[in-house]
Amino acid sequence: MADNTAIEREKHMKQLKRRMECWREVILPLNSILLWERSWYPGLILGITTIIFFLIWILEPAILTILSVTLLVLALIDYLVPPVSSWLSPVNKWTGQKEKKLNEICQNLSVIILQLQNLWKLMLKIRNDRPNVYYLGIILCLVLCIWIGSTVNNLLLFYIAVNALLLTPGFRHKGRAMSVSITYVRDFLFHEKQS
C-alpha cells in the first residue's frame, strides 16, 4: 500500500512538473517570497494585499467588476508570462540547482494536492457511512460562518483570509505557526493565573 502511494505521488509530481514547465522562472522567486527566504518578504506580502484591498475599499466596485478584473489579470498573466520569461531567461541559464529546487516545489505541491484530495474522499466517505455526523458538522460550520459573516465586514474577512492563506507557507516553513500559538496560549494562561 505504501509502495502504491509513493508511486502515485511520484506520478502526480511529474505531471505537475510538466504542467509548470513554462512557469519555472516565475515559480522559483514566488516560492522564495511565500517561504520568507528574506526577512522582509512577509511585509511585502502584507503590503501588496493591503494596497489591493485598500483600492477595493476606496473604489467600491461591484462584485462582477472585481471578478472580471481579477479574471482579466489572470488571463493576461497566463498569456504573457511564458513567452516573456523564456525571452528574459534563456534555457542555458537554467541550472541543476534550480531544477532541484523546482523538483522540491513540485513535490511539496503534489503532496498538498493529494492531501486535499484525500480529505475530500474522507468527507465523502463520512457522508456515506455516517450521514448524521456529516450533516451535523456541515450545519454547525455553516451556521458559524453565517454568524461571523453577519457580524464582521465581508471585505475585512476576505482580507484576513487572503493574508492567512498567503502567510501560511512561510509560517510552516519557518516553524513559527506552532510556536506562536503555543506562546500565545501559555501567555494567556499565565496571565490568567496572575490575575
Score class of each variant (00 low, 15 high):
20 M>N: 13
24 R>K: 10
26 V>G: 01
30 L>P: 05
35 L>C: 09
37 E>Y: 14
37 E>A: 09
37 E>T: 15
42 P>V: 04
45 I>T: 13
46 L>A: 10
47 G>N: 00
47 G>D: 00
49 T>E: 03
49 T>R: 02
50 T>S: 10
50 T>H: 07
50 T>K: 06
51 I>F: 04
52 I>F: 00
57 W>N: 15
61 P>A: 03
66 I>K: 13
67 L>E: 15
68 S>A: 15
72 L>W: 06
77 I>Q: 05
78 D>C: 09
78 D>P: 00
79 Y>Q: 12
81 V>I: 14
82 P>L: 03
83 P>Q: 01
86 S>W: 01
90 P>S: 14
95 T>C: 01
98 K>F: 01
99 E>K: 14
100 K>S: 03
101 K>Q: 06
102 L>H: 07
102 L>V: 12
103 N>M: 05
104 E>V: 13
108 N>Q: 13
114 L>W: 02
115 Q>P: 07
119 L>Q: 12
121 K>T: 11
121 K>H: 11
124 L>S: 07
125 K>H: 13
125 K>C: 09
127 R>W: 01
128 N>F: 08
133 V>Q: 11
135 Y>D: 06
137 G>M: 10
137 G>E: 01
137 G>A: 14
139 I>S: 08
140 L>E: 05
141 C>P: 04
143 V>A: 11
143 V>K: 11
145 C>N: 08
148 I>H: 05
150 S>C: 10
150 S>Y: 04
150 S>V: 08
151 T>Q: 10
151 T>V: 12
156 L>C: 06
156 L>M: 04
162 V>G: 11
163 N>P: 05
165 L>P: 03
166 L>V: 04
167 L>F: 00
